[in-house]
Design a protein around this nucleic acid. Structure first.
Lengths: 152, 152
DNA sequence: ATCACTATGCAAGCACCTTGCATGGGATTT
DNA sequence: AAATCCCATGCAAGGTGCTTGCATAGTGAT
């Protein structure tokens, strides 16, 4: 992976709909070569996928919440259970195992406070492995590019 | 925006490279109509953009950190400054103004602990508006679909 | 200096996207 | 209930973009 590849990656992070002709202008190669490089980056698993980004407000999922989850007991069984729980819940759009006193950070997308409340009570706290949660609601999303700074 | 539109949105969230023919099979319309609906969803700002998702490890940005930022003084000037700061830092891939005792949650993508350390010290703590930060490092990303659960 | 291998550009064939046009379905009004 | 209007839809054609075979240039090793 050379500088040209990184330029392609940065460009496609910003706009996955770029044609190979447009990519060619950006990186200074022919369109066919851009096509080949892009295909290779996909094969190598460097490009994982292409996703449409939706407006959270307009789609009715404007509420973003970050929840810290603490396990009841720290063992591999509970760890496995909690992963399966996060996997199975579509409201969980991101989940991390963390350092520090909080075991997991998860990001939640819901319609409103009512659905958030039922998510926490019925899905999270109802689970045997979960001991405690700490909820922080996003008042405003200031930035939300998940783009890694590969171009810089 | 009807049920068909939501199906299209859910499909494009998962795979932005779907052709209109493939979309047509999914939603049960013709390809031309899928094209028209998709164009309209873009015009309405419901589809904000299309982005390639990259492998964090393979691109060398495997370190994810969540930082709570507390302001020195809560006034509109500092609020403005902190927004501009987050905007200008490419390592900040997500930023929220939060409820609770912590003012901002930001998500950071860096290559390693060294670059994280210099980010915190030279970029964050060096800023006049920042009083205090609390750092939590992701040991493992369990889930990272930013897809809103519009299909469910 | 030679050889081998990879990257590249060009061109053609193919797939896909877009848009004009005609049709059909649904809702509203009389 | 009938008529009318409007919007969504399907079809087809024209144009655009993507992919791949082939020949060539560039690069590195021996």
């Amino acid at each position: 992976m050379d500088k040209t590849d990184r330029t392609i990656l940065a460009a496609l992070q910003n706009d996955a709909r770029l044609t190979n002709n447009e990519l060619a202008d950006i990186v200074g190669l022919s369109a066919s070569q851009c096509s080949r490089r892009r295909t290779q980056l996909e094969k190598d698993g460097i490009i994982v996928g292409y996703h449409a980004k939706l407006d959270r407000e307009k789609t009715g999922f404007g509420l973003t919440t970050i929840i810290s989850v603490t396990l009841a007991t720290h063992n591999s069984e509970n760890s496995k259970l909690i992963r399966e729980l996060f996997d199975s819940l579509p409201e969980v759009i991101e989940a991390h195992a963390m350092t520090g006193e909080m075991d997991y950070y998860i990001k939640i997308a819901t319609k409103d406070l009512k659905s958030l409340s039922s998510f926490i009570n019925d899905k999270l706290l109802a689970h045997e492995a979960v001991q405690h949660v700490k909820t922080a609601i996003s008042l405003e999303t200031l930035k939300d590019t998940q783009n890694i700074p590969i171009g810089q």
